[in-house]
């Protein structure tokens, strides 16, 4: 592993304030550890050559050109540039949660991933779009491969949401309605919603032949439940509070949370969607390449 990866753990990234710089730092860390780009198009018709960039797939290098010019160029095909990806970021109030052992909230973590992925996609000349949502779509940034797209990403991600609650079913339904052709959708959410509507929404996406990758983001405390005194849990998204002795229900809660994760993963698999769970304490420089590599293999 590259030694520089240690600088891309959430703690370090949290100390970098501007989101763009934070995302750029992350991307550089990710790219330096990859040998080929995970997000690519497929086509038999050659379109153009492009200079090799670190992270590009070595299999796409035109070795003939290299032999002639001693420089690395990639062969690009017609369809490859047609990759269109929309990144959906959940901005509901539950995403603002940050556990006592975390340096980033779930939203900050999701923003970072969205930015990093947008940067990666655009830098590959592919089109990246951004959707932020709560109970409805808050912002819709159409997909583009313009270099200015990253600035738009940052601007939209840093815009506060107008709603607090979530309605994923509605949002995915609206999204599917807006997209004309099959698109890669990357959903960044804590998915704290009823499983059945989520399943219906994913079914709708799959039916419209969109490719969905769910990056399920959660705080370590949400899984570990590390409370040991009687605690009043104040509900986010306008939900009522609860008082309980965490020691007595911690086990049951952990089991329920793990079961929720397993069920969510199962639902995703059923709809041919990719599911990745991410703890906000995890280093993205380690986790994102792993996720991207998984996508590459698939």
């Amino acid at each position: 592993m590259n030694k520089s990866l240690k600088y891309f753990d959430p703690e370090t990234l949290a100390s970098i304030r501007p989101l763009a710089l934070r995302a750029k730092t992350l991307v550089e860390g990710i790219v330096s550890g990859l040998h080929r780009s995970p997000l690519r198009g497929h086509s038999a018709e050659f379109a153009q050559h492009r200079e090799y960039m670190p992270g590009d797939d070595l299999r796409q290098v035109d070795w003939k050109v290299y032999a002639r010019s001693d420089r690395y160029y990639l062969k690009q095909y017609e369809d490859e540039t047609n990759l269109s990806c929309y990144i959906l970021v959940d901005q509901s109030e539950s995403m603002h949660y940050r556990g006592k052992n975390s340096h980033l909230s779930k939203l900050e973590y999701a923003q970072l991933i969205a930015c990093a992925l947008g940067h990666l996609i655009v830098s590959q000349q592919d089109q990246a779009g951004l959707v932020t949502y709560t109970s409805r779509i808050e912002h819709w940034l159409p997909a583009s491969n313009s270099p200015a797209q990253l600035d738009n990403f940052v601007q939209i991600l840093e815009t506060p949401a107008t709603q607090t609650s979530t309605n994923l079913t509605q949002v995915l339904s609206d999204t599917a309605g807006r997209l004309q052709k099959p698109t890669l959708l990357i959903l960044l959410s804590d998915m704290l919603d009823e499983l059945e509507p989520v399943s219906q929404a994913l079914k709708l996406i799959a039916h419209a032949r969109h490719d969905l990758v769910l990056l399920h983001i959660f705080d370590p405390d949400e899984l570990d439940f590390p409370f040991d005194h009687t605690t009043r849990f104040d509900g986010l998204e306008n939900l009522p509070s609860l008082t309980t002795d965490p020691l007595l229900i911690a086990g049951a809660y952990r089991r329920a949370m793990k079961q929720f994760h397993r069920d969510l993963e199962r639902v995703c698999r059923q709809q041919n969607s990719d599911y990745f769970s991410l703890r906000t304490s995890e280093s993205l420089a380690q986790r994102l390449p792993h996720i991207l590599a998984s996508r590459t293999r698939s």
Partner: peptide, 24 residues
């Protein structure tokens, strides 16, 4: 005494917690 000495936490997975408490 311990019931009175409660701490307060904002909690995202409140619905899940509610279900667990109801079940348990």
């Amino acid at each position: 005494f311990l019931r009175r000495q409660q701490t307060k936490v904002s909690w995202a997975a409140i619905e899940l917690l509610r279900k667990v408490i109801e079940q348990e």
